[in-house]
Amino acid sequence: MSKTTRATEMLDRSGVTYSLHSYDYDPSADRIGIQAASALDVPAGHVLKTLMLMADNTPACAVLPSDCELSMKKLAHALGAKSAQMMKPADAERITGFKVGGISPFGQKRNVPTVLEERALALESVFVNGGQRGLQIKLDPKQIVLVLGAKAASLIATA
């Protein structure tokens, strides 16, 4: 497994301190982020999933704890859009340049608006996908906002 991806290259160029963590990726897992958290022996809420969406027909990225569900209404509101829906996997791969299961918010082929679940900012460190299946990047969540120009907002669906 390569330890250099477009995601790590972007962080290196930005001068961000991070660490890489490999794990055995399970393509059959129901929830990849939760499987990654289990494999890394960290709380599921500390492993953030990267979701690619369309907000009013514009690509966007949402980053939130892997054990939470995204509220499309909250995401659309955060982006100033009327509606949002999940992007088709083939479109997500084409726009990001990463394979599903390995999509990182960093180093995507195209810059898209990114929204981070605001609760993540209360954590000292989080894990995000490193740009390939089985590779996680551990970093200060504030770096997601700084490097990507991401917006922090409430994104979690309430029961």
Rank of each mutant, 00 (worst) to 15 (best):
K142E: 14
A62P: 02
A78F: 10
I103S: 06
A84P: 01
A60W: 07
V112Y: 05
L48V: 12
S71D: 13
T4P: 15
T50G: 05
L20P: 15
R133Q: 06
L11K: 00
G134V: 02
P65S: 03
M86S: 07
N111D: 12
A92I: 02
N111I: 07
N129P: 10
M10A: 06
Q132K: 08
T17I: 07
A84R: 08
T4R: 04
E124Y: 01
R31F: 03
G101R: 06
S14A: 07
M52W: 14
P89E: 00
A62I: 06
K88R: 09
F127R: 11
P27K: 05
G131Q: 11
E117P: 02
I103A: 08
P59G: 11
I144V: 12
R119F: 07
G107V: 06
R110N: 10
H77Y: 05
P105V: 14
T5C: 03
Y25Q: 05
D24S: 03
T96R: 04
V115Q: 03
H77L: 14
Y25D: 02
M10R: 03
A62S: 13
R110M: 10
I32C: 03
R31K: 04
L11F: 15
A120Y: 01
T58M: 13
A7C: 13
V147K: 04
T58A: 04
A55P: 00
F98I: 03
A159Y: 00
Q143K: 05
A55I: 12
A157Q: 14
G102Y: 08
V47N: 09
G80M: 10
L53K: 09
T58S: 11
S104F: 01
K49W: 00
D41T: 10
A152G: 11
R94I: 14
K73D: 05
V145C: 08
A84Y: 06
S2H: 13
D56P: 11
L70R: 02
S22Q: 02
L146D: 12
L48Y: 09
V145A: 14
Q132P: 03
G131C: 10
E9T: 15
T8S: 08
K74N: 14
V147C: 07
A37P: 09
S19V: 11
A44K: 06
A39L: 06
D56V: 12
Y18T: 11
R6I: 06
R110D: 05
L146R: 14
G101M: 00
M87D: 05
P59R: 08
V126P: 02
P65F: 08
T5K: 05
A76M: 10
A92Q: 04
L121N: 06
S71P: 04
L53Y: 04
V16G: 09
S104M: 12
D41C: 04
T17A: 15
M54H: 08
V145K: 14
Y25E: 02
L70W: 02
P105R: 14
Q85E: 09
K99G: 04
T50L: 06
G107W: 08
F127H: 03
V63A: 02
P65C: 04
N129V: 02
G33W: 04
M87H: 01
K142N: 15
E118F: 15
E117R: 00
M86P: 09
R94Y: 03
D24W: 02
I144E: 06
V42H: 00
L20I: 12
A44Q: 07
I144L: 12
S28G: 07
Y25R: 13
